[in-house]
Every structure is written in structure tokens, then in C-alpha cells.
Nucleic acid binder design. Sequence first.
DNA 1: TTCTTTCATAAGTTGCTGCTTATGCATTGG
DNA 2: CCAATGCATAAGCAGCAACTTATGAAAGAA
Lengths: 125, 125
Amino acid sequence: MDGPFEALGDRTRRQLLELLSTGEQPAGALVRGLQASAPISQPAVSQHLRVLREAGLVTVRAEGTRRLYALDPSGLAAAQAWLVALADPLAPFAQPLDALATEVARGERARRTAPGAAERDGRSA
Amino acid sequence: MDGPFEALGDRTRRQLLELLSTGEQPAGALVRGLQASAPISQPAVSQHLRVLREAGLVTVRAEGTRRLYALDPSGLAAAQAWLVALADPLAPFAQPLDALATEVARGERARRTAPGAAERDGRSA
DNA sequence: TTCTTTCATAAGTTGCTGCTTATGCATTGG
DNA sequence: CCAATGCATAAGCAGCAACTTATGAAAGAA
């Protein structure tokens, strides 16, 4: 299991990504976040995070005794690129990443323009 | 197995979608298309097509004794919508389809307008 | 130091998923 | 009519993927 789509194929992992969409979070917070929906063990979450990491969908950063996870835009862009290439017959699957990178970059810029978006960690609202 | 991402999680099914990106095709052509890459049986392909259909990623149309398959844009848009919503903290997962539709539509237009000269103002990547 | 917290890994089990062969059901053609 | 083509479904099986409990390593607190 290596690709982004294989990682995205699991519901629990998608839920993890949704939790991370609010910003960088330690593994423990993610465990509690998932447990709010359904009973799951800490090792199970750790294994899911490993899959997401190897798929390039999240990044990890050690801070003290905690591991801070965050979305990896490049991995998400790769997945989006593939979907965009599918819908567009003009773009073959040679190097869809370029075309998508443009698309994503534009979205980024548009989003940065809007004020107020900086989250440190902390509990979700 | 019901969602689009579950369906996209399989490599063979993604290959089927790539084959369909060139346009509507009968099941038999898809079988031969896959068999060009790796040995696979006709029933296996039929089962994969069933999954894609139930996930809303492809549509079927009977014509005589053939079944013509085609990409289902709505299903693909739904998957894209989710990915875009992820990268955009401002858009919760309430109705991400609207926001994404806009984004995707813009990309479509941009691509159709200038096939090849995409990076006029963008920085190199 | 020892205890606690935070997280990853090891090992083992179970259920689902994707594959196969065999078969059935339409549609077309002789 | 019967045969052939095109595709779906049935049944069964092997492999993997996700889960569990148990354990260990690293960093801070007492």
C-alpha cells in the first residue's frame, strides 16, 4: 500500500485528514477525535497515521514527547491532479502534477488573501 | 463498499477510469485494455465496473448486446470536492461541492482557453 | 533516580476484497 | 430454430488489511 488513493480508500483515514484540516495536531488529539465517533485503539490510529505518512498525505514533526501531524499539500495535490486529468481529455497522464500544481497554487493564493486563518493547536471548536 | 474513494482505492479500477477518459467504451474494450497491462478475467473486470457504477464514478448505457461505459462527472466532482475542502480550512464539509465546482469550472475554462500556454503569470515549479 | 505521559512497533486474529471458474441471460446472425 | 457473441452473476478461495492486546522507547515531572 503506497499510493495516495490507497490511503484515501479508508474511511477512518479520511476522517483523520478531516480532523487535520483545522490545523496541525498531536497524535493524541487525533486519537480522541476519532474516538468521539467510534471506539478505536491508540495503536490503530498510529498505524493509520503511518499509512497516511507513507502516502505523502501528512507530515510529522516531533515536539518534545508529542508528534505533531499536519496535512501535506503536495500529496493532496497529487490526488487532485489525477482526478483533474481524468475529467480533462486534453491532459494525458504523463505529468499531471504540473497542471494541478498550478491549479492548487491559485487556490492557495486566493485563500491567503482572506484574513484570519492561523491556528495553533488546541481543542476543536 | 459504497463511496467514491473506496472505489478509487483500487489500482485496476483507476486504470479503468483512465481508459474511459478517452471516451465512452463497451465493456469488452475495457477488458482488452486491462489485459494489455496484466492478465485479468472478464468477470473480474465486470465486478470492478459494478463497483465503479455503484460509487457513482461511471454510467452505463445498453446498446444492443453491448454495455457502453462512460465517466460520471458528478461522481468525480464529488471526490474532487472533498479534496479541495480539505486543503481549504474555510470550507467545512457541509456542502463542499459548490465551492469545488467553482474551482474546477475555472480550471476547465482556463485549460480550454489556452491549451499549452498555462503559466503566463505563474512562477516556475 | 523513578514515575508518568505520549507515541510507535510487535505479534496475532479476523473479516473483507479481489481473483478465479462455472453458469445464466440477452441479443444478433445463420 | 440453434449457435455465437457480449456481459453479468454465483460460488468458492487466497491474501491482505485493519483491528486488537502487549510491549518498548523517548521526553518531561516529581
